[in-house]
Amino acid sequence: MRRAVITTTGASALVLALLALKPHHLASLAEAPRPPAASHSAGTAPGSSAGTGTFTGSPVDTEYGTVQVAATLVKGKITDVRVLQAPDQNGRDREIASYALPRLTQEALAAQNAHIDAVSGASYTSQGYMQSLQSALDQAHV
C-alpha cells in the first residue's frame, strides 16, 4: 500500500512522501524523541537507535534508465542521500543526474531540517529517485 503512494516524484512530492513514510516524525524531530522501532535495521548494533545506518534502495527502472539511491539515517533522520545509479544516455539524462537528483536530495534535507509541510516553487520529475529512496526508507523501518 505504501509503495503505491509513490506513483511519481518531484521535490515537493518527495517531501510529502517522506512525511507520508514517517508520519508525525519529520515534523516533530525537534520536539520529541522518537520511539524505537521494533524491527532491526542494517548497520545497527543491538541496543543502538533504530533507523540508523546506510540503507541501499532498490534499483528502479524508469523510462530514462535505472535509478538507485542509498540513504543514510541517524535515528530515523535522513542525513544524506547518495545516488548510486542514474541514467546518463543523453543530455536530458545527464541534466537529471547532474542537477535534479542532487537538488532533490538537498531539498529533502532542507525540508526535513526546516520542519516544513510542503515546498512551493519546485516540481522536479524523478520517479526513480523517489521509489528507490522509499525502498531505502522501508528497509530502515522509518
Binding site: A11, V15, Y99, P102, R103, T105, Q106, E107, L109, A110, A111, A114, H115, I116, D117, A118, V119, S120, G121, A122
Partner: peptide
C-alpha cells in the same frame, strides 16, 4: 499553522 518552504530559485536545496 501549515509551514510551506519557498524553494530558492538560485541556490538548489535552500529555501
Amino acid at each position: 499553522p501549515w509551514r510551506i518552504g519557498i524553494a530558492h530559485p538560485l541556490r538548489p536545496g535552500a529555501l
